[in-house]
C-alpha cells in the first residue's frame, strides 16, 4: 500500500469508527435494544477476532503454514486460562516464538 493510500485507510477507518461511537450517544437506547441486534453484534465481534487469530497464526501470504506461531498461541491460551494480564500474554507468546526460532525451528 502506498503512503497516501495508507493515510486514507487510517483516516477513513478513524472517521467511520468515531461515527459509530457518536451514533450510540445520539440515538435512543431502545432502537438497538432488540435481542437479535445485540446477539448479532456480539457474534460478529467474536467471529472477527477469532478469524484474525487464525490468519495471524497460520497465514503466510496465501499459504497456510504451521510454524513457531502455533506453539506461541498455545502458550498464550494457557496464560489466558491462568488469568494472566493482557501484556503478559502477548510477551509470553512473542518469547515462545522467538525462543523456538533461536533454536532453529519455525
Amino acid at each position: 500500500m502506498t503512503t497516501a493510500l495508507l493515510w486514507a485507510t487510517v483516516l477513513v477507518a478513524s472517521l467511520a469508527c468515531f461515527a459509530l461511537k457518536l451514533a450510540g450517544h445520539l440515538i435512543p437506547e431502545h432502537w438497538l435494544a432488540a435481542e437479535r441486534v445485540q446477539r448479532t453484534s456480539t457474534l460478529v465481534t467474536v467471529a472477527l477476532l477469532v478469524s484474525l487469530v487464525v490468519v495471524q497464526t497460520f497465514a503466510d501470504g496465501q499459504a497456510v503454514v504451521v510454524d513457531a506461531r502455533l506453539p506461541a498461541l498455545a502458550v498464550a491460551a494457557l496464560a489466558l486460562a491462568l488469568r494472566a494480564p493482557f501484556i503478559l500474554v502477548v510477551v509470553l507468546a512473542a518469547a515462545t516464538a522467538a525462543g523456538l526460532r533461536a533454536l532453529g525451528w519455525g
Binding site: V46, A68, A72, L80, V89, A93, A94, A97
Partner: peptide
C-alpha cells in the same frame, strides 16, 4: 506471534 496472541486475549 504476538499479534495472534493479542487477538486471542481480546476474544
Amino acid at each position: 506471534a504476538a499479534a495472534g496472541a493479542a487477538f486471542l486475549a481480546l476474544v
